[in-house]
């Protein structure tokens, strides 16, 4: 259904170009060494971080996440993970902006339900409006509802990021048809965020025409996170190239030989 409107080239978000179409989270790793190794293997340029209270007096001399993954080397994408209201999400991202010296690119997610981590779309829309008005460049986690995705785009979000399936579930892409409708209508980048389980899921997202994929658990909780990070890098690249190349038409219920039918030695 989607026209191939995307041309070969970099991913462009809010006017900035990125070579990698794989965005990764930094949560759930064993330690910072593993975090850094996996992120290096993924080739990701944009990495998400959460904003949390500092443990006063604890680990005062130890490195922090942004020492290991400095903003000079990566585009840091602060998120609002764990926020259940628009007010909490906006407050969190204003703190993130102060923490990152005025950095405007952020990931908005407002959750609705602790069991499913499904997005609360009414609160997400309220937060998106407030953040856009305050000068933020908002990449927004959302349901795979084409109407909501379009509404977020119209508010001024710089990318829409529908879920493939529940956050951290690894269930893969459950509704490629909805993603297809979102992609068909969107004029901002569409990234699948949440639910990727393994490399083929990422490849399918990119083959559908998604502009990028954001994942965390699929890498961090793999048996070998660093190896999986490399696999995801290749899957995103392979899926993108397959999308750009254009797949062959499907022929239902009818084989088509690849070898000549003329010149056979038998009948």
């Amino acid at each position: 259904m989607s026209m191939q409107k995307n041309v070969a080239g970099p991913l462009v978000i809010a006017g900035k170009s990125y070579h990698s179409r794989l965005l990764v989270g930094t949560g759930k790793y064993r330690d910072f060494t593993e975090t850094r190794a996996a992120i290096d293997a993924s080739g990701a340029e944009i990495i998400t971080v959460a904003i949390r209270r500092v443990n006063i007096g604890q680990h005062a001399g130890e490195p922090s996440l942004l020492d290991v993954l400095p903003p000079s080397q990566f585009t840091i994408l602060p998120n609002t993970a764990g926020c259940y209201t628009a007010a909490d999400a906006v407050r969190t991202l204003r703190l993130a902006r102060e923490l990152l010296d005025g950095h405007a690119l952020v990931k908005l997610e407002v959750l609705a339900d602790e069991a499913t981590l499904f997005p609360n779309m009414p609160e997400t829309l309220v937060a998106a409006r407030e953040l856009v008005a305050d000068g933020f460049q908002v990449m927004v986690y959302c349901s795979d509802d084409p109407i909501q995705a379009k509404a977020l785009e119209e508010i001024g979000c710089v990318a829409v990021m529908p879920l493939a399936s529940l956050i951290g579930s690894g269930m893969g892409i459950l509704n490629p048809w909805n993603l297809d409708i979102i992609l068909d209508r969107a004029t901002v980048p569409v990234l699948v965020d949440a639910g990727i389980g393994t490399a083929s899921d990422a490849a399918i997202a990119m083959e559908l025409g998604c502009d990028g994929v954001l994942m965390n658990t699929a890498i961090a909780k793999a048996g070998d996170p660093v190896m999986m990070a490399g696999a995801m890098k290749k899957a995103v690249e392979a899926g993108r190239e397959a999308y750009l190349a254009g797949r062959m038409p499907k022929k239902m219920y009818r084989g088509s030989p690849s070898s000549p039918t003329e010149g056979k030695i038998g009948p």
């Binding site: 998400t48 959460a50 904003i51 209270r53 993970a81």
Partner: peptide, 10 residues
């Protein structure tokens, strides 16, 4: 006061 830092997250 609230004092916050960046931590690992997705």
């Amino acid at each position: 006061l609230e004092v916050v830092i960046a931590v690992g997250g997705g």
